Computed example of a mutant assay.
Amino acid sequence: MLAIGLREMATGVGLLTRQHPTTFAWGRVAGDVMDLAVLGRAFRSDRTDKNRVGAATAAVLGVMVLDVIAGQKLSHSGNGVGAERRRQGGIKVKKSITINQPPEKAYSLWRNFENLPRFMAHLESVRVMDDRRSYWKAKAPLGATVEWTAEITEDLPNDLIEWRSTEDADVPNSGRVRFVPAPGGRGTEVHVELEYDPPGGVIGATIAKLFGEEPSQQVDGDLRRFKQVLEVGEVVHSDASVHRGLHPARPSAETPPLAPRYDGAPS
């Protein structure tokens, strides 16, 4: 309890005395996550009052929501934090996968950004605005959403697509995807590189990891689904992803409508 009190005092002093207190705001969110972990252990104990622990958990969750909102507002305000985050450098993600389809098919599906939510689980929508710009809306931890406009910076048909967010993005980011013929005529190697500045910097990225929503984790799943859409025509769902709870293994009675069938041409 003493350590928790000292932590709260330190973040409070930072919030009140620093000109750019964004890191301290996200530090409070990190502290809230640790508090929830402690309360979770307490709830599983037979020696605790479940009602009191439940009430404390609800209170911490309420405070955490307010701390997240404060951290987001500070991250997006014009207080110099954006420049500080650029100096620190963004977080980079590099992933690749081999797909048993020619480069032109892989490029064609990706190049129409409105197809991306078919296999990118964190994307809610992408709306193409013109030949170079598109408007993206994505899921964030704790049920929040982030939005940005992206512009294509380089486009080499069947070979390379590069894009970056505009200056007003909730989460500044950039990306590139290359489509390389695989050795031995085995299809296409898809190489993805992403760079982004998470709200709250490294602390914000650590919090996102705790919720399983950090982009390096997302890209692995996104590429597997991209491969399935190209090779199978749809995202393949496991038995466990369709049937809830304990049950004998069996085929699913229906396929959740998460990915429309791909017919070889952008929609």
Rank of each mutant, 00 (worst) to 15 (best):
P248L: 14
S165R: 00
R41P: 03
A205T: 01
W148A: 05
S267Y: 09
F113K: 07
I152S: 05
A205H: 13
V235Q: 12
E195L: 09
R186A: 15
G14H: 06
A3S: 02
A42Y: 04
L116A: 12
G5Y: 08
F113T: 03
V180Y: 03
S267H: 05
P266C: 08
P117Q: 08
K209L: 11
V38G: 05
A10Q: 04
T166F: 12
R250T: 12
M9C: 08
I4F: 11
D170S: 05
K94R: 14
W163K: 05
Q217D: 14
A240N: 12
A55F: 00
L123R: 12
S174L: 09
S238M: 03
P215L: 03
N51F: 03
L223S: 02
A25W: 08
H122G: 09
A106Q: 00
T23A: 14
S96Q: 10
G187W: 07
H243L: 14
Q88P: 00
D35H: 15
S134R: 11
A37G: 09
V93W: 04
R47N: 14
E147N: 14
T255M: 09
D35K: 12
V53S: 04
S45Y: 06
A169D: 01
V128R: 09
H76E: 09
A83K: 09
L66M: 13
V242S: 06
V146Q: 04
S134L: 04
P117R: 04
V63T: 15
S216F: 11
A3F: 06
P21T: 08
G185Q: 06
A138D: 07
R7Q: 11
M34Q: 08
S96E: 15
D131Y: 12
V81Y: 15
T11V: 10
A106W: 02
R132P: 00
P251N: 08
A182E: 02
E124A: 01
N115F: 01
S108T: 10
A25N: 07
P251K: 15
H76A: 13
D32V: 03
M34G: 11
S125Y: 01
S125R: 15
H191P: 00
G143Q: 05
R111C: 08
M34P: 00
V65T: 10
R224M: 15
M9H: 13
G80Q: 04
F113P: 00
F211I: 00
D155F: 10
M9W: 06
Q228C: 04
R28A: 14
V242Y: 12
F43C: 02
L109N: 04
A208K: 01
L15F: 01
V60T: 13
V192L: 15
P248R: 07
R224Y: 12
A58V: 07
I99Y: 02
Q217A: 14
E234Y: 05
E193P: 06
L61W: 02
D222K: 03
G12I: 08
D67T: 11
P257E: 05
P215G: 09
G14E: 13
R87M: 14
G204K: 10
T98D: 05
A83W: 10
Y262I: 02
W110Y: 11
